[in-house]
């Protein structure tokens, strides 16, 4: 019998393929390695990220689902909760106990109940509603708070870039 992490990832992959949530595609990059996934996330409608298709990479730890995966956008992103290198900083991706920003309640943290689907849905809602208290990208948080027009302009540029439209 294969390892439990592998079996669970296979089950989640099957589930995501059979019932894909709207606007989200995810799966292993290579079917020989289930611990590295790629995901495509569509920008939520009615937000400044609407229309964009954002590629991201998910790296699962060997002890998944006891520990959370890591998620990193592979395209350029400008968002209060995404580091400049694309790493996503939301509470569902943090195990209780480690709190890089010191603001998260443990109720939203990682636990085996969570899943790839829930992570991706949280990321979609994060795109729609940034949490500007988290300082993953301080510039973006500040701009989101104080200069929304400028923020929207940058977001639009990123959306166009992900679609391959020249800006």
């Amino acid at each position: 019998m294969a390892g439990s992490a592998l079996r669970r990832l296979m089950a989640e992959y099957k589930q995501l393929t059979l019932n894909p949530p709207e606007g989200i595609i995810a799966g292993p990059i290579n079917e020989e390695n289930f611990f590295e996934w790629e995901a495509l996330i569509t920008g939520p409608e009615g937000t400044c990220f609407e229309g964009g298709v954002f590629p991201a990479k998910l790296i699962f730890p060997p002890d998944y689902p006891l520990s959370p995966p890591k998620m990193q956008f592979t395209c350029e992103m400008f968002h209060p909760n995404i580091y400049a290198d694309g790493r996503v900083c939301i509470s569902i991706l943090h195990a209780p106990g480690d709190d890089p920003m010191g603001y998260e309640s443990s109720a939203e943290r990682w636990s085996p109940v969570q899943s790839v689907e829930k992570i991706l849905l949280s990321v979609v809602s994060m795109l729609a509603e940034p949490n500007d208290e988290s300082g993953a990208n301080v510039d973006a948080a500040k701009m989101w708070r104080e200069n929304r027009d400028e923020f929207n302009k940058i977001a639009e540029r990123i959306v166009r870039r992900t679609l391959g439209i020249p800006t």
Binding site: A2, G3, L6, N33, F34, P62
Partner: peptide
């Protein structure tokens, strides 16, 4: 050998 547990084949 660690990878054995994680490889499908």
């Amino acid at each position: 050998v660690d990878y054995m547990e994680r490889s499908p084949v």
